[in-house]
Design a binder for these strands. Structure first.
Length: 304
DNA sequence: CGTTGAACCTGTTTGC
DNA sequence: TGCAAACAGGTTCAAC
């Protein structure tokens, strides 16, 4: 379920009721997706969750500086946080402790208000890590720019300096943090850029169009609480609505909304990639444009 | 530095 | 209906 808009939706839901709560105890099931399970059991009990932030596709639960009875143990560690990545099938939501848990629930954080913050993830492609101080800072430094905040110059620089395919670059979390398969395809469709083109082949203008389309789509998707392809639900149990706005993703064989050409599905960067073979030409569409320009020039000359 | 393919794991959909 | 294959919103790593 989780690209930037879906993670943002979950984070906003958690923000309603989680900040200020203290973690009393930790219970773990399967732990192969947790960086250091023992660190959770050691460091979380007693900590208060100060805030819930989104960082790319991660949720960052900022933790109070130290446990209640444990003021000296972590001197110098600095800011601490629990990083939660939902992978493909992860869910993080609070539930009354008395509520029976779902299958594939692997983490229970007992809170001080009778609820448990539970992490459920059938495929366990997600990731959970307790990090503090330099380790936290270094981990966050691995990631690229925030797609909603990046400016024109930096975006063009990060894209046009690379020979990798544009789709691969959009998915590369060290370039941009938070873009996944759906929103990569959607933004390339909107920008009329072929997903297999090299980043270095994009003009400044094309890069800027892509940045604007990407940001517009992400903002719109957040407003609609994300895309619910299978079973994504926000914190209130509501599905997102943005899947109804998809123009390329999941539309193989269906007509392009612009030109009615059937949407094609290919594999790029190892991922299903949906695009319009007519609107999103493989090479820069300069032939048609320059031909038109020449005609206009001729017409102008003729008139002048 | 970049690409490809496989791997991780389980559930659901599709096709014969 | 049944079973197997294909596919899934993500990331990482080895091999080239």
């Amino acid at each position: 379920m989780p690209e930037l808009p879906e993670v943002e939706t979950v984070a906003r839901g958690l923000r309603q009721t989680i900040p200020g709560r203290r973690i009393l105890a930790v219970r773990l099931g399967k732990t192969d997706f947790i960086d250091d399970p023992a660190a959770l059991e050691l460091h979380l009990p007693g900590r208060r969750i100060e805030s819930v932030e989104r960082f790319g596709k991660f949720m960052l639960l900022r933790l109070s500086s130290s446990a209640l009875n444990d003021s000296t143990q972590e001197n110098g560690e600095g800011a601490a946080a629990l990083l939660v990545h939902l992978g493909m099938t992860g869910h993080l939501a609070p539930q009354a402790a008395a509520e029976p848990h779902q299958k594939h629930t692997h983490v229970w954080l007992e809170l001080d208000d009778g609820r448990e913050l539970r992490y459920t993830d059938p495929r366990r492609f997600g990731r959970i890590a307790y990090l503090a101080g330099a380790a936290l800072r270094d981990e966050l430094l691995r990631f690229g720019a925030e797609p909603l905040e990046i400016g024109a110059e930096e975006f063009a620089g990060r894209i046009r300096s690379r020979s990798a395919r544009i789709k691969a670059l959009l998915l590369d979390q060290s370039v941009l943090r938070g873009v996944g398969n759906i929103y990569a395809d959607e933004s390339l469709w909107r920008a009329k850029i072929h997903p297999a083109r090299q980043g270095s082949s994009l003009s400044v203008k094309e890069a800027e169009t892509l940045r604007r389309m990407l940001q517009e789509i992400l903002r719109h998707a957040i407003a609609m609480r994300g895309s619910s392809i299978t079973n994504f639900l926000d914190a209130a149990g509501e599905p997102g609505e943005y899947q109804r706005r998809h123009r390329a993703y999941g539309r193989e064989g269906e007509p392009c909304y612009r030109c009615r050409t059937p949407i094609r599905r290919i594999i790029v960067a190892g991922r299903s990639t949906h695009f319009c073979p007519n609107c999103q030409a493989k090479t820069r569409p300069k032939k048609a444009r320059s031909a038109r320009r020449i005609q206009k020039k001729k017409a102008k000359r003729g008139r002048g």
